[in-house]
Nucleic acid binder design. Structure first.
Lengths: 192, 192
DNA sequence: CCGCCATCCTAGCACCGCTAGCCATCTTGC
DNA sequence: GCAAGATGGCTAGCGGTGCTAGGATGGCGG
């Protein structure tokens, strides 16, 4: 029994290694550098081992994305916990969101741009995604007014996501970044 | 001289065929289906011909994107021309933007998600992109208030882009789509 | 101790973007 | 009118991709 336990433990460790290696590789050299051959070499196993853990490369990226949703939720939770004034809370949570996307662009891509379908089939992604979403929603609650809070939050979230993605693809002037964020926050964190 | 003119004309036609075939193929089967082999077969020439027109596949996608910026600018121009009431104008232009993104997702991707670098190196993209941007800006002008109009427009545009991309990737509930759009418009098309 | 079984690796498939080099055709200069 | 050169398109192939079939290997249970 103990032997089997060790095997399962080693296997779980290896799966963790695959995910974190894929993430590190993507963050340091971009997702183009994350090939199954490269990934296999990095974890010091052969290619087919990857396929005994994941259905394919997409599933690996999806696993990385899942981890990312947890990280993002943590960041947003911290940001909200530190804040006091309601309006300031929205600004801080929004800043944390943007900061996350800028500090970890490859991870953010895996979560929102690539791996379109996969993560939402599983059960656990909505959990961490909802956790992050809830932080945004709670920060925004005082300002939702007559609007449905969930709809309100989704719309604000879209604004953040749009700022982040257009900015990173060079569709927006780098200069006005802070001003745009402040403007967005101002439009949503006001009464009436 | 006439012979050379015919040659150049034929060559230009072929270049047009490459671009429009790539666009059609992407719109009907997705960008994954747009391979250089497939594209060459579709235009009934061999692969290397593509490379006598474009530097590589990315350049072809960029050319498709350029065309897309023109289409989008046309749509937004039409939407603004038809409108009367300032607030309604913003709503209509925004609706035209979202409609474009939903009707032509592959084209929209080429413009804003894929082909990150290329189109902005050339001269003509900013022209059509700026043309579309200007339509948004003019619609929003009455509501910018103390904010810089360009920054204001960029922020609203980001909101639209976020709505569209998150929606299409399944990160937002399909149900609340119209309400989110209306909410975004309401937050930006108000005085004070 | 031996046969079984799981595990992992080697080798290869079909496809990708891209390019070198040949071959035919068409133009040009004599 | 004809040879020589230039041009343009093609065939074939390179190195890479994600993924998989099938064989070797090493530890386990009887």
């Amino acid at each position: 029994m103990s032997i089997q336990a060790r095997r399962e433990r080693e296997r779980a460790e290896r799966e963790r290694a695959i995910i974190s290696t894929a993430r590190d590789l993507a963050e340091s050299e971009g997702w183009d550098a994350v090939t199954t051959r490269r990934l296999a070499a990095e974890i010091e196993y052969s290619q087919p081992v990857l396929y005994s853990h994941f259905k394919g490369k997409d599933a690996i990226m999806a696993a990385v994305a899942v981890e990312g949703f947890g990280n993002l939720a943590d960041d947003l939770t911290t940001a909200r916990a530190d804040a006091t004034d309601p309006r300031r809370t929205v600004a801080d949570v929004a800043a944390a969101y943007v900061s996350f996307a800028e500090r970890r662009p490859a991870l953010y891509d895996a979560m929102f741009t690539l791996a379109v379908e996969l993560p939402f089939a599983s059960q656990e992604v909505p959990v961490d995604l909802a956790r992050g979403f809830a932080q945004l929603a709670e920060a925004l609650r005082p300002f939702a007014g007559d609007d449905d809070l969930e709809t309100f939050t989704e719309t604000f979230w879209s604004g953040l996501h749009g700022l982040v993605t257009l900015m990173r693809n060079g569709r927006l002037r780098r200069a006005g970044h802070e001003r745009r964020l402040a403007l967005l926050v101002d439009r949503f964190a006001r009464l009436g």
